[in-house]
């Protein structure tokens, strides 16, 4: 496994410097040491997934990038800036947006208020009309309480609201989790559409069949580390290895 990692073209992929470069990221919840040196790159315009079993540290990786885990070390370099010590609002303002695993829809806000909540951090976000074209349900249910939406609609809302802000890098934590297959397909279409519109996506997934339909590359996490990287075109050839990692 260590050999596989050593072969990875992590630092100097295609010469261009990555939009997001995570190096030796460690994180703790209280006394428990959860991330043990996560290293990964995401290039501009890429969709990259983080695969791994439950408890591997995928969510913690996204939360650490976003500044939501207070005790962390290592390096998170984004668009020329070091963010490891920054506060989460400064990280958001640098242009990273986060869609949490639990979706984080606010019960005391209606759908429109939820959608409009994240402040615009820089120019270039999607206009509201485009967002409503992508997610027509949100317009129909504009006045509903946020948490009265179905699970799928809440997931759409959680993604939709971070598209307005001008953030370039989207961190999406298991958007397909617990949703019906049709909805999962719709989310897949949305992610491909976002890629076409120039967004960069770091996507946490457990479902690699879904991941395969949207991503350019896949990192595999185990026990708080990245242990492998697979290009999407090599995914089928690497099936045995992945089955072993993911225990499916």
């Amino acid at each position: 496994m260590a050999d596989a990692l050593a072969d990875l073209p992590i630092a100097a992929q295609e010469g261009a410097s990555p939009l997001l470069a995570v190096r030796g990221l460690e994180a703790w919840y209280g006394e428990s040491h959860v991330l043990h040196g996560v290293t990964l790159d995401v290039h501009e315009g890429e969709v990259v997934t983080l695969l791994g079993r439950n408890g591997a540290g995928k969510t913690t990786t996204l939360r650490s990038i976003m500044g939501l885990v207070p005790k962390r070390s290592g390096s998170v370099h984004y668009a020329g800036r070091e963010l490891i010590g920054a506060r989460s609002d400064a990280i958001a303002r640098a242009g990273i947006a986060y869609c949490p695993e639990e979706r984080g829809i606010f019960a005391s806000l209606d759908v429109t208020e939820n959608l409009m909540l994240p402040p615009v951090v820089r120019p270039g976000g999607l206009p509201l009309e485009t967002i409503y074209e992508l997610f027509p349900n949100l317009k129909e249910r504009a006045r509903s309480q946020g948490t009265k939406l179905s699970g799928g609609e809440q997931q759409m809302l959680a993604i939709a609201r971070i598209l307005r802000t001008g953030a370039k890098l989207l961190l999406l934590d298991e958007p397909s989790e617990g949703l019906a297959p049709v909805i999962v397909q719709q989310i897949g279409r949305t992610i491909r559409e976002l890629k076409q519109r120039g967004f960069t996506v770091l996507l946490v997934e457990q479902n690699f069949r879904f991941a395969q339909t949207v991503a350019d590359r896949h990192y595999v996490m185990e026990h708080g580390k990245v242990v492998d990287m697979v290009r999407n075109e090599d995914l089928n050839a690497s099936m045995d290895r992945l089955h072993e990692y993911l225990g499916v």
Partner: peptide
């Protein structure tokens, strides 16, 4: 209202 529910997430959206 949102920060009353989940202050950390509101801050992660860029609100001080």
């Amino acid at each position: 209202r949102a920060a009353t529910e989940n202050a950390a997430l509101v801050q992660a959206f860029g609100v001080n």
